[in-house]
Design a protein around this nucleic acid. Sequence first.
DNA 1: CGGTTTGTTCAAACTTTTTTGAACAAAGAG
DNA 2: CTCTTTGTTCAAAAAAGTTTGAACAAACCG
Lengths: 170, 170
Amino acid sequence: MDTPPEAEILRTDKLDSLQRQVVDFFVDGVKVLGMPRSIGEIYGLLFITPEPLSLDDLVERLNISKGSASQGLRTLKGLNAIRETSGDVERRTYYQPAIELKRLVGGFIREQVRPHLDSGKSKLSSLAQAARDERDPQHREFLADRIDRLEHWMRSGSRVLPILQKLLGQ
Amino acid sequence: MDTPPEAEILRTDKLDSLQRQVVDFFVDGVKVLGMPRSIGEIYGLLFITPEPLSLDDLVERLNISKGSASQGLRTLKGLNAIRETSGDVERRTYYQPAIELKRLVGGFIREQVRPHLDSGKSKLSSLAQAARDERDPQHREFLADRIDRLEHWMRSGSRVLPILQKLLGQ
DNA sequence: CGGTTTGTTCAAACTTTTTTGAACAAAGAG
DNA sequence: CTCTTTGTTCAAAAAAGTTTGAACAAACCG
């Protein structure tokens, strides 16, 4: 009475059932965070594989292009979500996942959240100025009130981030 | 030496400069949260307009289709992000934004975050089972460890949500 | 040096998501 | 009952985002 395993779309990769499930788990996860499938696939496979993998390993096992793999690894590096193992004599670079939640959350906040908060704050400043130019006093008051509120939201956001990081630091 | 205001793509709407800026502010905001432009436009215009607006007002002022407006309002309703003013004798429905951060955050968590956390948790259960079927003891231990970690992440997430809500509740 | 391996870049192809708008439903007014 | 107003639905068009792969760069090797 349980659903049959494997009901995915055709996908000729070299993963076993459990690996596929984990990879899909991460694909969903990164999608929620607004990132592309390939990022989730790469991180997911690294996460569920004991040994470090090279770019070509990823290309072959996930059946994605070199371009995708290269770009995905770059993004993951930027997020501090992977480590490169400097293979002693090896020329090729091998990758392992960073698995401390704190580190992952930190990277995500630094790369994806803060920039938006910051640019938002600066947009708000110019907005506040524009609101002061409104001629009608009543409407001016309304605008000031709304923009105050936005500024307050942004401050709440900034205030909460470090707390969030601490709580997830564990 | 400051940048000229207005460098937007052609967009024949009926908004003044300040309104346009606020609307764009929200468009960016909802995009970060993974929602479509139209949602940000609609909420943004409601936010920066003192009087309640009807669906047709939105269509006309934002220059979007009735379909977009209808679907956007439906989503915003689901998020608890707008209120309908039951116009006494009026037939038409008018909308105002919900402006309490607590309410907005609550709606977002309920609609966009919780469902993913929940489905993630259930996927993890079946994954944990699959891991126990691994034959090689060493690899089985590795898998168990990784899946434990995932379960721990999910618990952290669940634990943090109410705190987040409280902190943003203010 | 020329050959090989490893990885990056980016325009074009492809996929996914969003928007549009015409057809339809619902409900009041006459 | 018919006309009008208000809003919804959903297939198709458009827009946005992602992936591909061929050309290129960089670095090592003999």
